[in-house]
C-alpha cells in the first residue's frame, strides 16, 4: 500500500535520513521505533509531503507521491496525526472535527464519521463546544486521532500518540489504535513506547540515526536481544 525506497533527506546541511526503505501492506499495523532524533518524524513528514525528499521514491497505492501537493496526499486517503497533536487551539472540538473532513469527498460522510468517533471517544461529545486549546493532553490526543478519522483514512499515520499521556491512558490509546485497525484502517505508527506498540504490531522497523537497522514482526522484535537492551531495559 505504502512503499518507501531509498529515501534520503537533509535539513539544509544536516543529513538526517539515509536510504530508508519501508513498506506498509493493506490491513497491517506497522510500527517504527527508535530513539529521539532517529529521524522518525522526518520520515513521516516526507510521506505527507510536508518535506520534499532529497532522493528516493514514495508510492501510495502504486502512485508516486513525488509530484503531489500535501493536500492531494490527504485526498488519496493517506492521513497523518502529527506529533504534538496540533489541535487548532481556538476552534471548538466540533470545529476541529469538521476540519478533519474538510476534503470534499469526505463531507457527505461527515455525520456518519462523527457518530463513529463519538462512539470511540464519548468524552469528545461532552466537550463538543469546548475550545481545543483548553483541553487536557489526553483529551487533545483523542481529538487529534478523531480528527484524523474524520478524513476517511485508508492509511492512518500516527506520530507518538502516547507521548505525555498518563500510564492508564497509554494502555487505552493502544487498545483504540488496535480497534481502529480492526475496522479496516491500515496503520503506520511511530512510537517510543516500544513494548506496547510492538505488542499490537504486525511488523515493525527500528531506526537509529537516520537508518533502518532492523525489521521483523512485532513478536520477533520483542524477542530480539538488541531491542531488549536498547528499548526495553532488559
Amino acid at each position: 500500500m505504502l512503499r518507501i525506497e531509498k529515501l534520503n533527506f537533509a535539513y539544509d546541511d544536516l543529513k538526517v535520513l539515509w536510504d530508508v526503505d519501508l513498506e506498509v501492506n493493506e490491513g497491517e499495523i506497522v510500527t517504527v521505533v527508535g530513539a529521539n532524533g532517529a529521524g522518525k518524524t522526518t520520515t513521516l513528514k516526507n510521506i505527507s509531503r510536508l518535506e520534499k525528499p532529497g532522493s528516493g521514491t514514495i508510492t501510495f497505492e502504486g502512485r508516486d507521491l513525488g509530484r503531489m501537493q500535501p493536500h492531494q496526499v490527504v485526498e488519496m486517503g493517506l492521513v497523518q496525526v502529527p506529533e504534538g497533536r496540533r489541535i487548532f487551539p481556538e476552534m471548538t472540538v466540533m470545529e476541529n472535527l469538521r476540519m478533519g473532513s474538510y476534503v470534499k469527498a469526505t463531507r457527505p460522510d461527515r455525520q456518519k464519521n462523527l457518530d463513529r468517533v463519538f462512539g470511540l471517544f464519548p468524552r469528545l461529545r461532552e466537550r463538543e463546544k469546548q475550545l481545543g486549546g483548553t483541553m487536557s493532553g489526553g483529551e487533545q490526543q483523542m481529538l487529534a486521532i478523531a480528527r484524523g478519522l474524520m478524513a476517511n483514512p485508508r492509511l492512518l499515520v500516527l506520530d507518538e500518540p502516547s507521548l505525555g499521556l498518563s500510564p492508564l491512558f497509554v494502555k487505552n490509546i493502544f487498545d483504540i489504535i488496535n480497534g481502529i485497525n480492526r475496522q479496516g484502517v491500515t496503520i503506520l505508527l511511530v512510537e517510543q513506547n516500544v513494548y506496547q506498540s510492538l505488542r499490537i504490531s504486525h511488523r515493525a522497523y527500528v531506526m537509529e540515526t537516520g537508518r533502518v537497522v532492523l525489521t521483523g514482526t512485532g513478536d520477533e522484535l520483542l524477542a530480539n536481544d538488541h531491542v531488549k537492551k536498547a528499548f526495553l531495559g532488559m
Partner: peptide, 24 residues
C-alpha cells in the same frame, strides 16, 4: 462555512491545516 473555517485553521496552525487536506 468550510472555507472560512479552513482559513481560521490555516491561521492557527498552517502545518496541521495542510494535514487536513487544506490547500493553504
Amino acid at each position: 462555512t468550510d472555507t472560512g473555517q479552513a482559513i481560521r485553521a490555516t491561521a492557527q496552525d498552517r502545518e496541521a491545516a495542510t494535514l487536513m487536506g487544506i490547500n493553504v
